[in-house]
Nucleic acid binder design. Sequence first.
DNA 1: CGTAAATTCTGTAGTCGCTACAGGATCAAG
DNA 2: CTTGATCCTGTAGCGACTACAGAATTTACG
Lengths: 132, 132
Amino acid sequence: MDQFNLTIGKLSDQTGVKIETIRYYEKIGLMPAPPRTESGRRLYDGALADRLCFIRRGRELGFSLDDIRALLGLEDRKPTCAEVFEITSTHVEMIRTKISDLKKLERTLSTVAKGCSRNRTPDCAIIKTLFS
Amino acid sequence: MDQFNLTIGKLSDQTGVKIETIRYYEKIGLMPAPPRTESGRRLYDGALADRLCFIRRGRELGFSLDDIRALLGLEDRKPTCAEVFEITSTHVEMIRTKISDLKKLERTLSTVAKGCSRNRTPDCAIIKTLFS
DNA sequence: CGTAAATTCTGTAGTCGCTACAGGATCAAG
DNA sequence: CTTGATCCTGTAGCGACTACAGAATTTACG
């Protein structure tokens, strides 16, 4: 096994990453250019499928493609465990900030919306708040 | 007052919206094209400043430019209070979804990071999790 | 009054992470 | 042998800006 017998479509089905996205990852150097058939179609093996899964998992967890690039060791060298931890905790910090920002937003908006009469006039308390 | 005596730079300082962004809003029809000096420089008045503040407030609250367009009544007509409420509560719903997604992410990532030894080897538990 | 610095102008291209074509070639199934 | 599925490259679009380049004008200072 681990032969190059996966077409891009099969790889896409297997990993849940769209064909265009796979090609995009190749273009930006996140996935290596795989071997091709005589007619020029890409062929992937198990290792490349694993790598694509890694990227997908990273994206699901909200890492940027640059983060993933670093985690994969594509920048200069394989990152140490400490570096991986650093990238991850910076990312978690960002997520926490985003959550607290969104919570603030939600509170503000809920308050604003409460003042609304919901009737059919254009005389709206929400709009007034936005204007002040 | 309410004369057209604000240069774009002053408007920018007053509202905290960058000059390029103001011009961008004009280009996409969110701000009207203001009168100009003889040499072609834009001049704004108080009403336009208010409108720009409205847009900025809307953005701060996370509304999309399309939402703001609708709130301003640029689509077809001024929205009724009920329509404004609808836009707002849809938006709040989106924010709540985002918050819960991010919380899930945060929990997962914190768990993943806990397995990390933080040492100087490349043998990393975080990476392993991402690969599985 | 002269000049240097600040401001403004238009237009284009870049950001991120894809997605959606167009227009053609090739492959697999019936 | 034909039809339809899959694949190829290349380009343009999304949202909401941001960042230039290169020119013109205005303001401030000596």
